[in-house]
Design a protein around this nucleic acid. Structure first.
Lengths: 337, 337
DNA sequence: TTTCCAATTGGAAACGTTTTATATGGCGTG
DNA sequence: CACGCCATATAAAACGTTTCCAATTGGAAA
């Protein structure tokens, strides 16, 4: 009855075979005569045998478990990514051990070591910035590591991303195309490469290509949250020459931006136009609905996990640095052309 | 250098002691002479030894890993819960294996068995409804299971919840207190006990206590999402006798409700008043800001995990069925009194 | 000194699998 | 009818810990 503590040995005895044979049946090894297989299967059912994955892991050195490190699972953004990872993991019979790092270096390193101690078969890592010490640890990891929505900063690590620079360029260009001579940019900390070297660079390139001047105070840094977006825009609105077009680094900040504008008595998109980034579910939960850069978090997670399975199975991997396509989803926070 | 594949035996040889002693040092067993401890510790550092948790799990029958089953981690609601669980788990040196069930019975059962196969020390389960088969499996589980934000439906399982009936009562009563003779109720499927037997019951009791009639068509069922809230309210608005006060079963639905009202040209809270449920971060990301019932998901997760650790350590547990306090957070979707 | 007890250490079994090398059986072939 | 081979099955050795029990050590008391 209680399926607990019945071992492969019990099954072997019950079925009148050796444990090796039971092992083969359980693992779908073809070298078993059908009648034997049935006999064993019956014994398994009768006893309610459930293989002990820990023992299996010890003997085979494979745990069919992968570690997932994200900054904060309660952030819709990472949660979406995690779901993509988990779905593909399930598809390939893996389970995931999830850990939150708060993008903190020490936690990241500690988590990594815990996961390696647990003998995960691989790791998917997401973080704002790759600290050197972390990369050192990565390098000596006995299992493969894949970065998701995290730039590999020149290190030779498999990674799945979109082209953030181009995406920011496209968003800025779209705003400029609506006649704006000035575009505000509200994003996260610039020391995170994704903001500093990519989005920011794309923003500047777009200005430059349009022959527009770059103005230091058109850029405000927040911390990705709604509140920081709201605050940043409020600050921006105090200026006499406040830009009437805003590109926000995340949707959540974009919501804050829109509300700050509306709270000040202006209209989006009539007085101000706003473009967000990520296309989280939030984008449609606001009026006007948000035009935003689509960063397919679910897909990034799914592709990252698929990439990891390929590496684990020693399948051929054509390109370790995957760049997924992006696009801009047009909604009502932008005027019609 | 490579901390991989160096075993306790290597450390023992390096330190000139037996593996039993190394094991004691690693596990902080006090019965080791300080000088010996140091010798061993040095050897560990020199070799970069990292204990193999799988072997440890096999020998000790403890994996310091707990399983977490949620319907969908990409839902902000469950993500918050998961974060609470993970934080407390980390505090007690546990890791979590996370699985998504989509509230699907077969997936739930499959997931449960996978987790048990992996020898988790305990499980935290969240789901809309406890199917009989699932409960059967729960009963024969060799490890403790704690329900989080999930009613135990009369089964004797440890659980952490709030008083949903009273919360719904309070919300409805508050709306009635604002002079409404009619209150709309938009929630999830009634077959989920939390909606059908709790929130719905609280709603009806509040009407009854106020001497107001219950009207079938004041209740509309959705599926928790923004879109379903929007749609439900649009339907409601078609009626001539549409209620001017709405209690929505989740914040996300409440946002949909508010937007439906605004899209129809009405004002919240002047024409309609709305109360949500959960107090997710969404509640402040809308104008007007949402008045909502606070269901502390993070806390529920944290308390559930803490409860599980108590059970695992055989600590005394005074009450296995924990009911956390709730309250209503007043914001602008309600008129001032 | 001896004796004895407590503190410390070591040896080896156990945990439940996988896996390798080896044995067995049946059957077609010459 | 004997031989060799392929398909199956078995036995036993890993895998890297923990833990029980026994052995040793050290020092205080006698």
């Amino acid at each position: 009855m209680n399926s607990n503590n019945v071992t492969i040995y019990d099954v072997a005895r019950e079925a009148g075979v050796s444990m090796a044979t039971v092992s083969r049946v359980v693992n779908g090894n073809p070298n078993v005569k059908p009648t034997t297989r049935k006999k064993v299967q019956d014994a398994i059912d009768r006893l309610g045998y459930r293989p002990n994955a820990v023992a299996r892991g010890l003997a085979s050195k494979k745990t069919t478990t992968v570690g997932v490190i994200v900054p904060d699972i309660s952030n819709i953004f990472f949660a979406d990514l995690a779901r993509g990872i988990e779905d593909v993991a399930t598809m390939y019979k893996y389970n995931i051990i999830l850990g939150n790092s708060d993008a903190n270096r020490d936690k990241e390193i500690h988590l990594l070591n815990t996961l390696l101690g647990k003998q995960v078969d691989g790791i998917i890592f997401m973080g704002g910035r790759l600290h050197e010490d972390l990369v050192e640890e990565f390098k000596r990891s006995p299992v493969p590591i894949v970065l998701a929505a995290t730039l590999n900063q020149g290190y030779d690590l498999p990674a799945v991303n979109i082209d953030y620079e181009q995406a920011a360029y496209d968003a800025t260009e779209m705003l400029i195309g609506h006649g704006h001579k000035q575009v505000g940019f509200i994003t996260g900390p610039l020391e995170q490469q994704i903001n500093g070297e990519k989005k920011f660079a794309g923003y500047r390139r777009a200005l430059e290509d349009a022959g527009l001047p770059f103005q230091e105070n058109d850029v405000i840094l927040g911390n990705y949250t709604y509140a920081s977006g709201l605050e940043a825009m409020q600050k921006m609105l105090e200026r006499d020459d406040c830009p009437k077009a805003i590109f926000a680094g995340t949707d959540e900040m974009a919501l804050g931006v829109i509300h700050a504008i509306q709270d000040a008595g202006f209209s989006v998109p009539n007085d101000f136009e706003v473009v967000g980034h990520d296309n989280t579910r939030l984008a449609t939960m606001i009026r006007p609905k948000l035009t935003t850069v689509v960063q397919p978090m679910y897909d990034i997670g799914a592709v990252a996990m698929r990439l990891l399975t390929k590496i684990l199975n020693a399948e051929e991997v054509e390109e370790k640095n995957v760049v997924l396509p992006h696009r801009i989803e047009r909604r009502d926070s932008l005027r019609n052309d």
